[in-house]
Nucleic acid binder design. Structure first.
Lengths: 219, 219
DNA sequence: TTTATTATTTAGATTTGTCTAAATAATATT
DNA sequence: AATATTATTTAGACAAATCTAAATAATAAA
C-alpha cells in the first residue's frame, strides 16, 4: 500500500484522536489537521476505498486493522526521528516535532529499522511517548498521570501531552524537561495553582491548566 | 524562497546537466527527470517567473545566481544524507541515492548544519562528490580522470559518475568501491576492454563503457 | 534552398488535494 | 414535536504538476 503524504497525515491524526476506540468526528479531524471538514470528507472516501478506515456518512471514522498498522509505522518513524534529532543532533525537546513531521514521510522500512538500531532501539521518544517496534507493537506505557492529579510528592516528568511550541518553550525556560525530577510543594484549590520545586532550583508556581499537560510518574 | 519538491528536483537536475556553463536542453532535462518535454516547458516558465533560471523559448535553460545557490543547498543536503546513511547506518554505497533523494527535501538549515557537524563536516560524499559548505562553496575536487583515460598504473577509485543502481551493484559485486585501489594490467584497443586488478583479488576485465564512469586518481 | 527531421511549445485534459457555498442530516432546545 | 443549531456532505471550482496530441520552430539533409 503506497500512501501519499496527505493520506499518511490523515491516518496519523485519526490514530491520534482515536485514543483506543472512540469514533473520530469529521470536524475534530479537520481541526487537528488544520483543514476544512469538506476536505476531510473527501479524504475519508478515499481512505475507505483503500480499506484503511471504517467510515459511513455522518457516522464518523475509525481505523481498520490495516489503517492501524499503517498509523503505527508512521508514528514509529516520527518518534525515531525525534530521538535522532535530540540524541544525536542535540536539538532541544521542543524543536523536533516539526522536523520529524517531515522526516516521518520517508517510507523505507530498511531505513527505519537501521535508524532504530543506530539509536539503540529506544522504546520512548523525547516526549516520553512509546515507540512502536518494527511489528507495530507498543511498549505499554509506564503508569503515569498528569501533574495536577498526582498523589505522590516526588515525581519524574515522563511526557508532555500538549506539544504546542509555546508550552514546550515555557517548560524549557523553567528548566523542566523529560526526566526532570520535581516535588509538589502545595496544591492551591482556591486559585487552581500548583507550587512545585525542581531539583536544584527555587520553587515555582504553575497553573493547573499547564499541569494537566505534564505527565509524571512517582520516582 | 519556498520551493516545492518538483521545483527542487528541476533545479537540481539543471545544475547537474549544466556542468559549468552549458545550456540545458528541454529534452535532456525531461530525460534526466524521467518526465515529458512538455512538462519541462511548463516548469521552466514557473522557474523563470521565480528568477531561478534564465530561459527563453527554444533557447534552453541555465541557472541564475539564485538558482545556483538553491541547487547547491539541495546538493549539500543530498550528499550529507548520503554520508549519514553510509557512515552511521551502514548502508552500502549503491543503496543510498534513492533515500537521499527523499531526505534532501527536508529544508531546514539548522538540521542541515547540525547533521554536517555530527558527521564531522565531511567534504566528499560516499560517491566521491564534493559537498558544498553552508555558504554553497564547493571544495575543489582532487585531480581525477575516468578509468579509461588514466595514465598512471596504480589508482584509487574516487567517484562513480553514473549513479544507476545497475552499475553500482555491478561494481559492488566486483569488490570495487570508493577508496578501492586498483592497477591497470592492460588496455585492449581492439575490443575496447580494460583488464584491471583489484588489490587482493584476481584480475578482471571491464568494458571501456563501464570504465568511463569510474573516476580515479593516481595513488 | 527546399524539404525532412527533430526539438520545443501550446492547447487542452487529468489527478490529487484542497477550498467555498449551499444542501442535507443529526442533535439540541424550546 | 416543532424548530433552531450544529455537523456533515455535496456540488462545483481551483492550483499544482503532470500528460497527450497537435502546432510551430530550429536544425539537418538532400
Amino acid at each position: 500500500m503506497n500512501l501519499s503524504i496527505a493520506e499518511e497525515n490523515h491516518i496519523k491524526s485519526i490514530y491520534k484522536l482515536q485514543e483506543g476506540d472512540a469514533v473520530v468526528t469529521t470536524n475534530a479531524l479537520a481541526y487537528e489537521l488544520d483543514t476544512k471538514p469538506a476536505s476531510v470528507t473527501d479524504m475519508a472516501k478515499k481512505l475507505k476505498e483503500k480499506k484503511l478506515i471504517e467510515y459511513e456518512k455522518y457516522k464518523g471514522i475509525t481505523l481498520s486493522a490495516d489503517g492501524r498498522k499503517a498509523a503505527l509505522q508512521i508514528v514509529r518513524r516520527h518518534r525515531l526521528w525525534e530521538c535522532f534529532l535530540v540524541d544525536k543532533l542535540s536539538f532541544s525537546w521542543e524543536e523536533v516535532h516539526e522536523l520529524a513531521e517531515e522526516l516521518e514521510h520517508v517510507r523505507s522500512e530498511k531505513l527505519t529499522n537501521r535508524l532504530s538500531e543506530f539509536l539503540g532501539n529506544p522504546v520512548i521518544d523525547p516526549h516520553g511517548d512509546p515507540i512502536p517496534d518494527a511489528n507495530g507493537k507498543l511498549a505499554k506505557p509506564r503508569p503515569q498521570t498528569s501533574l495536577d492529579q498526582a498523589n505522590a510528592k516526588r515525581l519524574v516528568v515522563t511526557a508532555v501531552s500538549d506539544q504546542s511550541t509555546a508550552l514546550l518553550a515555557f517548560l524549557n525556560a523553567k528548566g523542566i524537561k523529560l526526566g526532570t525530577q520535581l516535588e509538589i510543594v502545595a496544591h492551591y484549590e482556591y486559585d487552581n495553582s500548583i507550587e512545585i520545586k525542581v531539583k536544584g532550583q527555587p520553587a515555582i508556581t504553575i497553573s493547573e491548566q499547564v499541569a494537566k499537560n505534564i505527565m509524571v510518574r512517582p520516582v
